[in-house]
């Protein structure tokens, strides 16, 4: 049985890769960009779900970690000449100017930088719980943004970085997304994952059972921040330009929406909802543009997209708090028992 499941997982993986390859060839460049964005949002959603869903820490600092990852990795892949031309207001710090790394390494360093910041933030913040944690992490993410806006020689301030080489393609985004999925499954099913869930269910009981609260909370927080940083790096290299205003609270809100919609504490749910929300964000652009029905002209309503998304979040939390999957996961047993095989959903 176990063998069978591994086989099925491998088949699913191959099918997924084939789908990525096919989509990469058949779609036009705009749709490939959205498809790539889906992969990035899966990474971001999973990283937030690890902290908020599996460990039960209500952290709202994601935009800050993404900003750190995006800036560090972008500064590492930009060439010294490019940096000179981008930093035209104030000259760049000479040390940062000369270092340059290949894209994959830059992503990892970006993730590590975000994780490092999370480690420093975590020491004071993770002693708090619930709302205090939420507001403190939100505060830190704002502080990161303000610092980035004001450190002209490091980050080019509010002008942001432009002309970043667009290394991120569907392969990078989905490749890292698949790695993240497998890593999360491994983490959640292992000893640490059980400790995380124990903390989520009852902190005091978990502590009484000998689980070190601080160590595990910190671990979840730092790992989550690492993937957020990698996701931020991918995003920066997809769009090609980053500025501090990109990393406002609204970015955290979007990821929170993905996590809540998919089910707080479900990997499968996050994967599905990340894909759905990303596509929906693009599809819903039509309501912000003027619509011509032949006989009537409906003027576009700017801002309507976010109204729809806020309503979605409120609707789910008020009427269907479990989200799409609750805490359930995709499982081969269900299909094996029913002798009903469909390799549609992507998971392991």
């Amino acid at each position: 049985m176990k063998n069978r499941k591994t086989q099925l997982t491998i088949i699913l993986l191959i099918v997924t890769i084939a789908i990525i390859a096919v989509l990469n060839i058949t779609l036009d460049s705009y749709k490939i960009k959205i498809f790539t964005l889906c992969g990035i949002y899966i990474i971001l959603g999973l990283s937030m779900n690890l902290i908020n869903g599996f460990t039960g820490l209500f952290s709202l600092g994601h935009a800050g970690f993404m900003a750190v990852g995006a800036y560090v990795s972008a500064l590492l892949t930009m060439s010294p000449e490019l940096k000179d031309s981008v930093f035209y207001v104030a000259p760049i710090n000479p040390f940062i100017k000369v270092i340059q790394l290949p894209f994959p390494l830059a992503l990892i360093v970006g993730g590590l930088a975000a994780a490092g910041i999370a480690f420093l933030i975590g020491a004071p913040v993770l002693r708090l719980n619930d709302d205090y944690l939420a507001i403190a992490t939100l505060g830190f993410s704002e502080i990161i943004r303000v610092v980035i806006t004001n450190t002209q020689t490091l980050t080019n301030g509010s002008l942001g970085l432009k002309g970043i080489t667009r290394y991120t393609n569907a392969w990078w985004a989905w490749g890292i997304a698949i790695l993240t999925i497998f890593f999360m499954i491994w983490l959640i099913h292992g000893m640490y994952g059980k400790a995380f869930k124990a903390i989520r269910e009852d902190e005091i009981a978990a502590e009484a059972m000998g689980i070190s609260l601080f160590k595990h909370k910190m671990m979840s927080f730092v790992i989550g921040a690492f993937f957020a940083g990698v996701g931020g790096g991918l995003l920066g290299h997809l769009i090609g330009a980053i500025d501090p205003n990109m990393f406002r609270f609204i970015l955290t809100f979007n990821i929170l929406l993905i996590v809540v919609l998919g089910g707080i504490g479900s990997i499968t749910g996050t994967i599905i909802s990340a894909t759905a929300v990303t596509i929906l964000m693009e599809v819903l652009r039509f309501i912000e543009n003027p619509i011509n029905l032949g006989f009537v002209n409906i003027p576009g309503i700017p801002g309507m997209r976010m109204v729809v998304f806020s309503l979605m979040l409120m609707g789910v939390i008020l009427f269907y708090p479990k989200g799409l999957m609750g805490r359930a996961e995709f499982n081969w047993d269900y299909f094996l028992k029913k002798k009903f095989l469909r390799n549609r959903k992507k998971s392991a």
């Binding site: 908020n52 039960g56 209500f58 709202l60 619930d130 709302d131 939420a134 609204i250 809100f253 929170l256 809540v260 707080i264 976010m306 998304f309 806020s310 979040l313 409120m314 939390i317 008020l318 708090p321």
Partner: peptide, 12 residues
């Protein structure tokens, strides 16, 4: 957590 998410949703 649900109440806090609802509060954030209401604010947005």
């Amino acid at each position: 957590m649900s109440i806090m998410i609802s509060a954030i949703g209401a604010s947005f």
